Amino acid sequence: MASGSKKVIYAALIGNSLISVTKFIAASISGSSAMMSEGIHSVVDTGNQLLLLLGLKKAQKPADTQFPFGHGKEVYFWSFAVAIIIFGVGAGISIYEGIHSLQDPHEISNPMINYIVLGLAMIFESFAWYFAWKEFKRTKGSQSYYKAVRRQKDPITFVVLFEDSAAMLGLIVAFLGVYLSQVTGLLIFDGIASITIGIVLGGTAIWLAHETKGLLIGESADLEIVDGIKSMTDNVNSIQTVNEVLTLHMGPEYILVTINADFHSIINSDKIESDTATLSAKIKEAYPRVKRVFIEAEASD
């Protein structure tokens, strides 16, 4: 999963790096507000990819006394930070630039360079989007896209996919803004396009923040995993009743499991120790992402 996530990030990083400078050059030559917003968008996306790579690197740090369950949630934190940056920087500056353009509209000179840059940007973004979509499709399996996003425990792939989708939509809006300004002579279309790009970025950021917030706070494992663990406890002879099974994602590839069970009083401690050790081993074998299993003995209500 981490390897696939890195490929997606590198593809997006290369694509955004190739077009960010050209967008700013085109904006400075033509004076297009929408093109300036797209340049800012690409710079923000490039920085976001670097932050996601930083998160993946930090998440690989081994557990220590201060962080006994490892640093897997670094991925969640930096994904949430990316959403905030998209909203605060990308959306904020694009909307500001659009409002400024509406207040002081100016003619777009040499619009052809904008069309060339936007066309090249669409090609580069299409490659990056395809890599992200392909990886996301592989991880989603037979689930619907909406359900896959809601249940995805590795946010990297869908964060990049949403970024690239917003980038493609932004390019289309920028193209329309420049084109409509040119053919109608109404310069407000360029400013409106810039504001629209900001709204697209803002909506994307809010959705990403919502999806990564739950992971950062602490989401349980998928219901299928929880039910599977409960089924395994039914086959443990020393357990009389399972009071609850709690799971927590400490990272995309790290699930913590706690089982609260009422053991038969006639079973001796050696048998209980043996059964719990066997149960723990079976759970980890069936679900490799489960790294730690804690079993607590408590009488049922």
Rank of each mutant, 00 (worst) to 15 (best):
I206K: 02
W207P: 06
W207T: 05
W207V: 10
L208A: 00
L208I: 10
L208K: 07
L208E: 02
L208G: 04
A209W: 10
A209F: 12
A209V: 09
H210L: 12
H210V: 11
E211V: 15
E211K: 00
E211Q: 09
E211T: 08
T212R: 00
T212D: 05
T212M: 03
K213D: 04
G214N: 05
L216G: 10
L216V: 04
L216D: 09
I217V: 12
I217F: 11
I217R: 04
G218H: 08
E219D: 09
S220L: 01
S220M: 08
A221T: 08
A221L: 09
D222G: 04
L223N: 11
L223I: 08
E224T: 07
E224Q: 07
E224F: 12
E224N: 15
I225A: 03
I225M: 06
I225L: 02
V226K: 03
V226M: 06
V226E: 03
D227E: 15
D227F: 05
G228V: 14
G228A: 05
G228T: 10
G228I: 11
I229T: 11
K230N: 13
K230A: 15
M232Y: 05
M232N: 06
M232V: 11
T233I: 12
T233V: 11
T233D: 03
T233G: 06
D234L: 14
N235T: 11
N235C: 10
V236N: 03
V236T: 07
V236A: 07
N237Y: 08
N237R: 10
N237F: 11
S238N: 02
S238Y: 04
S238R: 02
S238M: 08
S238A: 14
I239L: 05
I239S: 08
N243F: 11
E244D: 14
E244S: 14
E244K: 13
V245N: 01
V245T: 08
V245W: 08
L246N: 10
L246I: 12
L248P: 15
H249D: 02
M250L: 13
G251D: 04
P252Q: 01
P252C: 00
E253Y: 14
E253C: 03
E253S: 15
Y254Q: 12
I255N: 10
I255K: 13
I255E: 08
L256H: 14
L256D: 09
L256N: 13
L256P: 07
V257I: 07
V257M: 02
T258R: 12
T258D: 11
